[in-house]
């Protein structure tokens, strides 16, 4: 394909403009994470885009080291919250992926669970807040409040629709000839699913898992309602970073935000080559 230099230039300009806007808040967060307290909320003429006196105090602070500028008691360090977020998001993602993928396959190949597509769309459409009171009562009754497994369970359930729908589109799209051949050769049905179908689905599985993981990792509301102290997650912990000495601890929040961006970014990079291929939703078939 012949392309003119001008076209390429325009493309670069447009990409750079998009990048610029995408990066403003990200840049602000990164810069904030290294700013000393005096620069956090500076405004007007004092506003600094780049920290004038860069410091690692914000990071030290959230991990429990006493920093002079921030004479605030931290009852919990961020380490625990990061652990809570990782554990509940990863297990929640596993639940959603395992249950969702099996169900999608069961429906796609064996036509069981015909109610699931609509039921799961309804589940996802529905604001979780609207049933928060019954869920809280259930979770308390089952002793699931403020536990990582309780949080993982609800995460697995609320993101189940995503994994189900994504995987179902791939299974529908996937040619069945290979599986049928294996069946004819006497391979058991379950083996066909686990040894033949799933390996072929590595890309879609990885990209669906990333989306589901991001959704779980982002949650603020559910964790706010269903945790009290032991398993408070990153967003909830972040909201508690404020003090009467200094107001909102923006630097500490940004430092935590920067750390919190690492797992999804690493996950994203790890599956980068699957990412685009994996999200076609089988919609190209027609």
């Amino acid at each position: 394909m012949q392309r003119s230099v001008i076209f390429e230039l325009i493309r670069y300009c447009l990409v750079l403009i998009a990048l610029f806007f995408a990066m403003i808040p990200v840049f602000w967060m990164i810069s904030m994470a290294f700013k000393p307290i005096a620069e956090w909320t500076a405004s007007g003429a004092d506003l600094t885009w780049w920290p004038k006196a860069p410091t690692l105090d914000n990071f030290r602070f959230i991990f429990g080291q006493n920093t002079n500028a921030l004479i605030v008691e931290l009852e919990r360090t961020a380490g625990r919250a990061i652990l809570a977020s990782l554990l509940s998001s990863v297990i929640g993602t596993l639940i959603a992926m395992v249950v969702g993928t099996s169900a999608a396959y069961g429906l796609s190949r064996y036509n069981y669970g015909k109610n699931l597509p609509l039921a799961l769309i309804q589940l996802r459409l529905f604001p979780p807040l609207a049933v928060m009171i019954p869920v809280m009562i259930m979770w308390t009754f089952l002793n699931l409040v403020d536990t990582w497994w309780g949080l993982s369970l609800i995460y697995g359930i609320v993101t189940l629709p995503f994994s189900f729908w994504l995987m179902k589109t791939y299974f529908d799209e996937m040619p069945k000839e290979i599986e049928e051949a294996a069946l004819v050769e006497g391979c058991s049905r379950f083996r066909v699913f686990t040894r033949i179908t799933l390996p072929m689905m590595a890309g879609p599985l990885a990209s669906s898992a990333l989306l589901v993981f991001i959704l779980n990792w982002s949650d603020y509301l559910i964790a706010l309602m269903l945790t009290t102290r032991e398993w408070v997650t990153i967003p909830v912990y972040m909201a508690s970073l404020s003090s009467s000495m200094t107001g909102q601890l923006y630097g500490a929040k940004a430092a935590l935000g920067l750390i919190a961006a690492i797992p999804p970014v690493i996950f994203g990079i790890a599956i980068q080559k699957h990412l685009v291929r994996g999200l076609t939703f089988g919609a190209l078939k027609q």
Binding site: A38, W40, T41, A42, S242, S244, M245, T246, G247, Q248
Partner: peptide, 11 residues
């Protein structure tokens, strides 16, 4: 809110 108010006074 008060966090901004306290922060502003501090500065």
């Amino acid at each position: 809110g008060w966090p901004e108010q306290y922060g502003n006074m501090a500065s």
